[in-house]
Design a protein around this nucleic acid. Structure first.
Length: 586
DNA sequence: GCCGTTTTCGGCCCGACTGTTTTCAGTCG
């Protein structure tokens, strides 16, 4: 039997089917239903193919009976009959057409029926022969836009599609906001959009500003040294940085910051769902205010708290605004309470359980790392250098680890105000064993294990490998459990449901690694892990004192995953953390 | 195609911008 399609593959298939229906002239709501469904599948933390087979995929918001049937067909036969049928009628090149700016499904359909255009190549030929302008509803300007888009080099298209990791984008946004506030002293400039939601990566930088001098602010934006090209008005300005990131600045009068910030924080899916629910209550939400059908009046609100309150909702933290159930959870009951979690905060973290020194590939000594951790206000720090088989010239032999344990004990005497734990980040070998003897592992205060080799294993083998490690009695936690690198490397194939079940059963913790390239577990995975009963740890994986601060990206991911402080072991004092170790629980 | 503290049928977020238009359709975020 063929393996189940991944959630990603199912989502791709539903999106393609949506595109096909759209080009076939289906009503927009049907098309939107496919795209909403695709998103729900992509975000789902469990195997949707399995869910659909047991008739439970309809529990996902946006998946009904029809989509479930199509998912089952995809899992059983490898394709969806409706898509097969549509493909005979709609040339695949038409979908490519809709990716061009200013060219959507309606125009692609029009070009196909009027001119027989069915690919980027035939579109180019038609445009060059000036046949586009002859079509009713199109004109020379449109023809020019099309030729322009087709002539743009591939690299530029790719650059425009590229996403920037959160830390870099946030730093840039803060630089721009600071420079603007300096030039227009009364202006308040706030990063919004996916930046404010602390997403893994962002497509562009959204800034929201409040000022009484909008013209001055828009002009100042265009003058910024970081901005390469800009256009603007009193409502805002757009530009592009020299590094190629699009920047959007929106300017509001002080009285409506709440509405504007809520709108531009998004996500698009959150806002669409929020507004649909509001319409049922006779309220119409936009970036300018809330229009009440009953009075015909539009209210302008200064704060987001007021916006959510006006809609009968508890305040929703930006990290939760992805339309993953937060709107339902925010509904206030008769006593004014909601089902939203109290999210973990950076200040809840009492220690770091994953850090490196010069003993392996780190850049600082045990003492330097410990002092930096203490200066962050931590109660404890685990030194977890790589293990015997790590390779890259920085493996730690068993003898070296014994010596390292002594060095940690000695450093603990020297450095006041923090407890240093002797640990290791051991490799999970392809057969699921760890690469130190149990006798040595038993001497350590903290053992974290990670996959660093043989990423390309079969899903079932990788699952078996990691579950075996989880079941090791001396192991405390699994580091960066999926191996993903944001925008670079997909997670290795593994059955996370089985991993979570095993971890919950034996009491092995799972990490949210705070390295901004990793943030692994991801937000949706972390949420599913907690739901399965897993205890998490949030670590920096620091290789030098400064990168201890990377724990903030782990906290961002945890918050996006609905994680509370009580779900995270290193939010607890050291004695409580020790009591959570498997060894202590026996 | 999905969904329901006004509905199992009849709705389905909101506004800006562009280019083509004599009042608006299509696209985008």
């Amino acid at each position: 039997m063929a393996p189940d399609p991944t959630n990603g593959a199912i989502a791709d298939a539903l999106e393609e089917l949506g595109d096909l229906y759209e080009l076939d002239g289906a009503i927009v709501h049907r098309v939107v239903a496919y795209r909403t469904g695709a998103r729900a599948v992509r975000d789902a933390p469990v195997s949707v193919a399995e869910l659909a087979r047991s008739g439970r995929a309809t529990e996902l918001p946006g998946i009904g009976r029809t989509l479930q049937e199509k998912i089952v067909a995809l899992a059983q036969t490898g394709s969806i009959p409706a898509a097969e049928k549509l493909r005979t009628r709609i040339p695949s090149g038409l979908i490519q057409l809709t990716r061009l700016p200013g060219l959507g499904p309606k125009r692609a359909r029009l070009l196909h029926s009027e001119l027989g255009v069915d690919s980027l190549q035939s579109l180019r030929e038609a445009a060059e022969a000036h046949r586009l302008r002859a079509v009713k509803g199109l004109g020379p300007k449109f023809e020019e836009t099309v030729l322009d888009a087709l002539q743009r080099p591939v690299e530029e298209m790719e650059r425009a599609a590229a996403r920037t990791l959160l830390p870099r984008a946030l730093e840039l946004a803060e630089t721009l906001a600071g420079a603007l506030a300096e030039r227009v002293p009364d202006a308040q400039v706030i990063p919004a959009g996916s930046l404010r939601r602390q997403a893994d990566s962002v497509k562009d930088i959204d800034l929201v500003a409040v000022t009484d001098a909008p013209e001055q602010l828009a002009a100042a934006f265009a003058e910024l040294p970081e901005i390469e090209q800009a256009s603007g008005s009193t409502a805002g300005a757009r530009g592009r940085t020299h590094s190629g990131i699009a920047v959007d600045l929106r300017i509001a009068a002080p009285g409506q910051l709440g509405n504007l910030l809520q709108h531009f924080t998004g996500s698009g899916a959150h806002n669409a769902a929020l507004r649909e629910a509001a319409v049922r209550r006779g309220l119409h939400v936009s970036e300018y205010g809330i229009l009440d059908d009953a009075t015909g009046e539009t209210e302008h609100l200064v704060s987001e708290q007021e916006v959510y309150a006006r809609l009968g909702l508890a305040y929703i933290e930006p990290e939760l605004r992805e339309n993953r159930g937060e709107l339902q959870a925010a509904v206030l009951d008769a006593k004014g309470r909601s089902q939203l979690p109290k999210l973990i905060e950076l200040a809840d973290i009492r220690g770091d359980l994953h850090s490196h020194t010069t003993a392996s590939d780190g850049r600082a000594s045990i003492e330097e790392m410990a002092q930096a951790a203490r200066d962050r206000g931590y109660e404890y720090l685990a030194i977890t250098d790589h293990s015997a088989s790590h390779g890259f010239g920085n493996a730690v032999s068993p003898e070296q680890l014994r010596r390292q344990i002594e060095l940690v004990r000695a450093a603990n005497e020297k450095v006041e105000g923090i407890e240093i734990l002797a640990g290791s980040e051991v490799n999970i070998l392809p057969d699921g064993s760890l690469d130190y003897e149990d006798e040595l592992l038993a001497e350590l205060d903290w053992v974290i294990a990670s996959v660093h080799t043989a990423f390309a294993m079969e899903r079932s083998d990788m699952t078996e490998r990691i579950v075996k490690a989880i079941e090791h009695p001396l192991l405390d936690a699994i580091g960066h459990p999926t191996g993903r690198k944001i925008e670079q490397r997909r997670p290795y194939a593994v059955d996370l449901e089985a991993v979570f079940a095993a971890a919950a059963r034996v009491g092995t913790m799972l990490e949210i690694n705070g390295n901004p390239d990793r943030r692994d577990l991801s937000d949706v995975d972390a949420r599913a892990a907690v739901q399965a009963g897993v205890m998490l740890v949030v670590d920096s994986d620091a290789h030098r004192p400064a990168t201890l601060a990377n724990v903030r990206w782990g906290i961002a991911t945890a918050r996006r995953g609905w994680v509370r402080a009580q779900d995270v072991a290193n939010s607890r004092p050291l004695d409580e953390l020790r009591a959570l170790r498997k060894q202590a629980r026996k």
